[in-house]
């Protein structure tokens, strides 16, 4: 995603937020003006635009997977919350926390970002660091296994498959 695309996306977001226009009330024009200035500033300040090959945005099946993934993720988010809420309200507070290192086969920065955010939103896990070579440091609130392959499978296996189909 290069800078012009980012600029357009952010502008669209801002337009939707300030919609509908209260014309002839002139304050709407001020809103849009301020918004465009801020969007321009943000686009300019962004150090390294996210690199995604443009043709990938044109393949419809990626959007299909994205919608499926949204539902899968929502289910996991609700489950995650019930799990954390259980640990919060349980008198003995049954937690076994720690930071684990797992490896992902995803290579695109955008895919790694989405994977990291998904981990943070779901059952008892929080991504602490994501390295470019695909190593993730994950804080797990209730460690079930210390064995690397099993931990990898339990932590990221359920998302990697989807994210790979959306981005890679």
């Amino acid at each position: 995603m290069n800078r012009p695309v980012l600029f357009l996306l952010l502008s669209l977001f801002w337009m939707l937020l300030t919609w509908p226009p209260d014309l002839p009330d002139s304050s709407y024009l001020q809103d849009v003006g301020v918004g465009l200035v801020v969007v321009a500033l943000v686009t300019w300040m962004m150090g390294r635009p996210i690199e995604t090959p443009a043709r990938r945005w044109l393949e419809p099946k990626r959007y299909g997977w994205m919608i499926v993934y949204l539902f899968v993720l929502s289910a996991y988010v609700v489950k995650a919350n019930l799990e954390v809420a259980y640990r919060v309200f349980h008198p003995a507070m049954p937690i076994r926390p720690g930071i684990l290192k797992v490896k992902t086969r995803l290579r695109l920065p955008a895919a790694q970002t989405v994977l990291g955010n998904s981990i943070t939103l779901t059952p008892g896990t929080l991504s602490v660091d994501v390295r470019e070579d695909g190593e993730l440091m994950v804080h797990w609130i209730n460690i079930r296994t210390l064995e690397e392959e099993e931990a990898t499978r339990q932590l990221i296996g359920r998302f990697e498959w989807f994210v790979e189909r959306i981005f890679e």
Binding site: V77, A80, V88, T120, L121, G124, L126, V128
Partner: peptide, 15 residues
């Protein structure tokens, strides 16, 4: 209730 910053972040972000 949670003991350290990482566990607190878990509660703080998810819920």
């Amino acid at each position: 209730r949670f003991p350290d910053v990482y566990n607190r972040l878990q509660a703080g972000t998810k819920c």
